[in-house]
Design a protein around this nucleic acid. Structure first.
Length: 524
RNA sequence: GAGCCGGUAGCUCAGCGGUAGAGCAUCUCCCUUUUAAGGAGGGGGCCCUGGGUUCGAAUCCCAGCCGGCUCACCA
């Protein structure tokens, strides 16, 4: 939305900017400000000086002068007392109060403070003292306006750590995250924790000798998951391309190539709906390790979650609403059909035939339009009746073959696969297989998926000849893991909406922001 | 995709057929250590958009846009 110069609040700010420039004081001309302290550092430094001089007075030694500081930040509140003026200044570290007085800065400079607005960036210098009301405060002797805010920030009143009359409109906060972040230290903290989790994941895998790699985002065959891809086009090559929907197939190519432990944290794109648990682009962690089976991957996930929770909370327990979830291993293993038996009373034998499965699905009130296979039905029943009950971490195991085209068969029950999905807090958090490394079997699976694709299943796995060629060179037995990072961050930070763990969640375009397509304004 | 709820000043919200409101913010004036908020006075609106009903619509009706929640689906 272009700057509305008819708006009073904005016009006043533009006017003040013009006045500053007329005085040769363009705030946007500054390209640096040397800080001696952060705001929090200025306060703590002063408090240390206080205790030092208090003990110095007891021993009768000469007192140090009060510390002088240079601090910079955004102005959050201005309290004008006539010939004195107080400002709340905030930076990333916290806040400090500023005290301006005519005879400290001079009448001319003091008058210039009329041109200061909430939201402006200010750099100041002067000694620190404690006011009569006990607040540690910088007595400003010099100041520079470092940048002007032409728009008023969406904030209510702020005094100390309290904030009143805050912006609560979630649409505003997601669309204008910059303003949300500027005004809400708690939101910045949320994303700092996300970063900490990412750092933790890397530390975890690096400590275990895994190699972090990067694989293509632009692909001609987008596979490795059941999802619809985004389409794009390479002009020069005149080639249709897809954005990747998973990392799987390229990472397994690397296992073929002789890397024995690899992982990637990457953005993937799925052309599907948007809600509190889904964003069209999201971050996925996948790891592959040669010569290990599913049991090793279970142990790996148990360790990873405990490691991350302990980093954040000091113990392997995460908050969940007003309660807590204990992540201490071992976590229970629950075969898929056993979970369904426990929560619906339907016996596993019923799923021996498609007709039996369809009958149960109908009785349970499921929409059968797409019920093309037993596996599909089992998955739906699980999603609806079992998954929401799995609050404590649970490995659901023994997935049907037809919904697991990349997982090894269980030798004595070839309709099932060596696969688990991890559920915590009623949400799927991880998906892992003993990776199918038999290229002949893999080709049959792809062909079966192709038949489903021909049958109208847009999410059936596409044939990938290059991947098959890689398997044909030989891939060792391998354990693979996938974890949705955003869901993981939601779990670890007790958030119920994926938008609150994404800095810039996907939103429909704002009507009036629409640019002329001919001018090429909007990307993607 | 369906149902329900919402969109009014920079922010938070009230108003729900009869001149567009409040608090904070903003502007002017007074005040040299204030603390959500000293005192006095002033300005500020495409009431989401487009149709309709009506003497008259922010308010009622229809369609649409954007968002939230629930459900269906995908991680």
């Amino acid at each position: 939305m272009p700057l509305d110069t008819t708006n009073d609040l904005i016009r006043v700010r533009l006017d003040k900017l013009a006045q500053l420039r007329a005085q040769g004081l363009d705030p946007f001309a500054h390209d640096r400000f040397d800080r001696s302290h952060t705001t929090a550092g200025a306060v703590s430094g002063f408090q240390e000086w206080e205790t030092r001089t208090a003990s110095g007075a007891e021993s009768g030694s000469e007192p140090d002068p009060a510390p002088r500081v240079c601090v910079a930040g955004r102005v959050f509140a201005i309290r004008n007392m006539g010939k004195a003026l107080f400002v709340d200044l905030r930076d990333e570290s916290g806040r400090v109060q500023l005290y301006f007085r005519v005879n400290h800065v001079g009448a001319e400079a003091f008058a210039r403070l009329d041109l200061l607005d909430r939201g402006d960036f200010l750099g100041v210098g002067g000694p620190v003292f404690r006011t009569r009301t006990g607040e540690v405060t910088v007595e400003v002797h010099e100041f520079q306006l470092l940048a002007k805010a032409l728009r008023p920030l969406p904030m209510g009143n702020l005094v100390g750590e309290e904030q009143h009359g805050d912006v609560t409109d979630v649409e505003f906060r997601y669309r204008q995250r910059y303003a949300d972040l500027a005004v809400h230290p708690g939101v910045r903290e949320q994303f700092r924790r996300r970063s900490l989790i990412l750092r933790g994941i890397r530390d975890f895998f690096d400590q275990r000798g895994y190699l972090e790699v990067e694989t293509p985002v632009l692909q001609t065959v987008a596979g490795g998951a059941a999802a619809k891809p985004f389409h794009t086009y390479h002009n020069e090559l005149e080639q249709d391309m897809h954005l990747r929907i998973s990392l799987e197939l390229y990472l397994k190519r690397l296992i073929v190539g002789g890397f024995e432990k690899v992982y990637e944290i990457g953005r993937v794109f799925r052309n599907e709906g948007v809600d509190t648990e889904h964003n069209p682009e999201f971050s996925l962690l996948e790891s592959y390790e040669a010569y290990v089976n599913l049991g090793a991957i279970e142990a790996l996930v148990e360790e990873l979650l405990c490691f991350l929770a302990t980093r954040l909370y000091g113990r392997p327990v995460v908050p969940f609403g007003d309660e807590e979830i204990d992540l201490t291993p071992p976590w229970p293993r629950l075969p898929l059909l056993e979970g369904i038996r426990q929560h619906t009373g339907v016996q596993p034998e019923v799923f021996a035939s498609l007709d039996g499965a369809r009958g149960v699905a109908g009785r349970l009130g499921l929409n059968l339009d797409e019920a093309v296979s037993v596996g599909w039905i089992v998955d739906k029943i699980h999603g609806r009746y079992v998954q929401p009950k799995l609050i404590r971490p649970t490995f659901v195991t023994e997935f049907p073959l037809e919904i697991s085209p990349l997982a090894k068969k269980i030798a004595d029950r070839p309709h099932l696969t060596h696969r688990f999905e991890l559920y915590v807090a009623g949400a799927e958090l991880a998906n892992a297989f003993s990776e199918l490394n038999d290229p002949l079997d893999q080709r049959e699976r792809f062909e079966a998926q192709g038949a489903m694709r021909d049958g109208g299943d847009e999410e059936a796995h596409p044939m990938d000849e290059d991947f098959l060629r890689a398997l044909e060179y030989g891939m060792p037995p391998t354990g693979g893991l996938g974890i949705g990072i955003d869901r993981l961050v939601m779990l670890l930070t007790n958030q119920t909406s994926i938008r609150d763990v994404l800095l810039f969640p996907h939103m429909r375009p704002e009507g009036r922001l629409d640019t002329d397509p001919a001018s090429g304004g909007q990307g993607v």
